[in-house]
């Protein structure tokens, strides 16, 4: 193991233990690690943005490829820096307005297309697949019933009583199964990360586990 590898592993282990110390209670070691992580993360993204975005999207096209039209987004982008002084702070609204307007307008029709029409089509189209056996049909029916009943549960314009109440009840059961599955997946994801950290401590750092 090289010196830099040894230093790297030791530092990683120290900071891992510092973060784990939060399980006891909030303490200076954890706070140090937490703030260092924020600082390093911001610095990391600044480095990435400088090299991949600033150089590639602004400096090179404008100064090397002479794409002077890019001064338009640069001009509007500079308005973001208006927050430095109280008299120019309102300028920040201009680029935000542009982003919001473009994002909202495009988002409405785009999400209707992708998240409503396509999802609805996929839900209904399950019945039109060829070569379906009885089990596939049951699954397709369950999928449609699940989507419909869960939507009814979130529909509050009608009182949840009678038939609507029954459908909403079925919707709750589907939602609970869905939430249970999401919970189980999240737990297993976190557990595997935890196992990874313990493996690092006992295998890579302390060499207790071979």
């Amino acid at each position: 193991m090289s010196v830099m590898n040894f230093i790297g592993t030791t530092l990683a282990a120290i900071f891992t233990l510092a973060v784990f110390s939060f399980l006891y209670k909030d303490n200076p070691f954890y706070k140090f690690a937490e703030h260092l992580l924020v600082g390093l993360s911001v610095g990391y993204y600044v480095g990435q943005i400088w090299h991949t975005a600033f150089i590639s999207w602004i400096i090179n096209p404008v100064f090397n490829e002479r794409q002077y039209i890019l001064f338009i987004p640069i001009f509007f982008g500079l308005f973001y820096l208006g927050f430095i002084h109280s008299k120019t702070v309102w300028l920040i609204r201009i680029p935000i307005a542009l982003s919001l307007g473009i994002g909202s307008g495009y988002g409405i029709s785009y999400s209707f297309q992708t998240s409503i029409f396509i999802q609805l089509r996929e839900t209904i189209n399950v019945f039109t697949q060829s070569g379906m056996d009885a089990w596939d049909v049951i699954k397709a029916i369950l999928l449609v019933v699940g989507v419909f009943s869960a939507i009814v549960y979130f529909f509050f314009s009608w009182k949840h009583e009678g038939v609507v109440g029954w459908i909403a009840k079925v919707g709750i059961y589907f939602l609970m199964i869905g939430f249970g599955a999401s919970f189980g997946l999240t737990v297993m994801g976190r557990i595997s990360l935890l196992i990874g950290r313990f493996l690092f401590l006992f295998q890579d750092w302390l060499h207790i586990i071979k």
């Binding site: 943005i49 975005a53 600033f54 999207w57 602004i58 890019l70 987004p73 640069i74 509007f76 982008g77 500079l78 308005f79 973001y80 820096l81 680029p95 542009l98 982003s99 473009i102």
Partner: peptide, 8 residues
Amino acid sequence: MKIMGVFA
């Protein structure tokens, strides 16, 4: 929008 995002 990418370029404006850099300034954000």
